[in-house]
Design a protein around this nucleic acid. Structure first.
Lengths: 343, 343
DNA sequence: TTAATTTGCGCAAACGCTTGCGCTTTAACA
DNA sequence: TGTTAAAGCGCAAGCGTTTGCGCAAATTAA
């Protein structure tokens, strides 16, 4: 290695007395397709190795139009649910030979827009999106331009975009049903971002379960997937004339806030009040009372997303698929069985 | 927009009767430097807008050698501490006009290697690395090739690489000191990956504090930053002939395991046993007993890292800087004051 | 009016790769 | 021996930018 300049494909060609063309073909695994002799292949491989040749992606990308890059935008890496999805999607894409450009939008719709505009320049081949708001003009435009897009968890109902999410209706229905079966009738549901699709579906599930049980006392409050929202709404509820016997929080962040309020009021779970939440998390096992929850099939969501995106990439006629995976009720100790009811 | 083919710089040039050169200069903010008339600038900007021109990064990158891309490898996105760092670094880089290619190595040294090899092809301009093991041959090689690298949190002591981390010695020292001031003498320290630099420093801090207090009863066990390790070691300690009065866990994952063991044994914190841990986390406030901890200056770590990397990029003579930021002792309610000691 | 300077801009050569097309050599067949 | 097919490979044209250099026109100075 006398020359410390990076080797390029030409160097390999010169070294082997082969053409650039053949080198390119061998290095891209197309040797057999173009009938390059086994001997030549070995020669080239060996030389590439020896020269420490690293292909220049920009050049390849410029020529071929393929960047092998997928953009992933996510509302907040600090939300463990999203972090898990990001991690799993990243891995899954890597296995397919793609690289992930990840951006954290901090739940900001405007930032999401400008981030996406910037990513576009980079010839990304596809976009995996956990939306950060209700504006979708920019997404629509991307879709029109032919960029394959898959939404995860959240999605836009008005848009004909592929998505994969949990069956939020079912999850909320089951959780509520479980509460009701345990004898609860006065159930408060603390919601997150009101207009987000998962939230709407969960509320629908809650209401349907209440309805089927003949319970008219629908109580929904809150407006954000935040600790603070959970805290405030729980404070309010505890001090309301008719204190709920059970609370159903629609995310584990809300549950955190709720828990804080309950502790402050010196109530205990589940003796004084029951709590169940959407989203699992390892920490839930270690709380004052381990919290029962609706567990989402996180790994499946991630893998399904990548699978759909790959289909879209290889087949432009791929028809939009919108997938809802079934959640799972994970019971721990935070729900009390009331007055003689059986579990 | 009759033509739905993507516009390129040539289209803009044609549209404005300017040369490609001028268009490029205007669009790259170098208009004034090259004295392009204000009128022409406006003309070009307007046309670019109208044609919906999006520059092709690969082409620019190929020509200029600048990819405006930084690789970030991280041992696990599921570790909230790392997720936070990733998120903050991502934001910080974005502000500097860079894009982050993030990869989760799942704490696997081998994967780290192959991931980095792949990223190299993409002309990344720099690497921010939270190492996933003790092998550093591959890193050394990258460094030799001239790639700017900054380590975060963990680092290789033998390598002359810039890093930014917490002053782990100080953090552990203070935590141990606090335990001792609270009257504890039998203190178990449950460590993580033995050979990792942060771990070694923390152990050194623990020992030094014990030493200065004249305490000879050094108890260090464990070998992994995992829940399981915390669980096992705590189980063992609780059932040992001389049960410690306090446990100092070296990460919040270890603390989780420790907590689980303590609960299982039906001991209470801090009445039966005290617990303090490295790393803060929002959830720590909501545990059965809010845990006192050594809080790392996460935001500062992230921003300092980016700052150093940027310096390296703009000034190749930049001398290696190795920064240790001071941690902060965050007291909650998990340490008991023993026999008449004052806090 | 002429010379010197400034203003405003463009030419054309890379950057390193992929790929459509086609050429030569060798083997197979009749 | 001539014809055909297969094997093995290379030419050269781009992909869309950036950038060193240089040149004409306009302005200013003398």
């Amino acid at each position: 290695m006398k020359n410390n300049k990076k080797a390029n494909i030409r160097d390999v060609a010169r070294e082997t007395n082969m053409s650039i063309t053949s080198v390119s073909r061998v290095l891209n695994g197309k040797a057999d397709k173009y009938r390059i002799a086994k001997k030549s292949q070995d020669l080239i491989m060996e030389a590439a190795e020896r020269l420490n040749y690293v292909p220049n992606f920009s050049a390849a990308n410029l020529r071929s139009g393929k960047s092998k890059t997928i953009a992933l935008t996510i509302p907040s890496l600090n939300n463990p649910f999203f972090a898990y999805l990001a991690s799993e999607i990243n891995l899954s894409l890597r296995k397919e030979g793609f690289v992930t450009i990840l951006s954290d939008t901090f739940e900001n719709n405007e930032d999401e827009k400008s981030i996406l505009r910037n990513l576009l320049k980079r010839n990304v081949e596809g976009l995996i999106l956990i939306p950060s708001g209700n504006d979708y003009e920019h997404i629509l435009e991307l879709q029109k331009s032919g960029l394959p897009i898959v939404c995860v968890d959240r999605y836009y109902e008005d848009l004909n975009l592929p998505y994969v999410t949990t069956n939020n209706f079912k999850g909320a229905f089951r959780a509520t049903e479980y509460l009701i079966e345990s004898g609860h009738e006065n159930i408060l549901c603390i919601q997150g971002v009101v207009k987000s699709e998962p939230n709407k579906e969960r509320i629908r599930g809650y209401k349907e379960a209440m309805f089927q049980a003949g319970l008219k006392n629908i109580r929904v409050s809150g407006n954000d997937f935040s600790i603070q929202n959970g805290y405030l709404e729980t404070k309010l509820a505890i001090n309301s004339p008719k204190r709920p016997t059970a609370i159903f929080t629609l995310s584990n962040t809300i549950a955190m806030g709720s828990l804080k309020a309950i502790l402050e009021e010196e109530l205990s779970i589940p003796d004084d009040i029951s709590l169940i939440t959407y989203d699992d998390h390892p920490y839930l096992d270690f709380l004052i009372t381990p919290l029962s929850c609706v567990e989402q099939p996180r790994a499946d969501i991630a893998n399904m997303t990548v699978k759909i995106l790959m289909s879209m990439l290889s087949d432009s006629e791929f028809e939009v698929s919108q997938v809802k995976l079934d959640p799972n009720l994970k019971l721990r100790d935070s729900v009390k069985t009331l007055n003689g009811k059986q579990t």
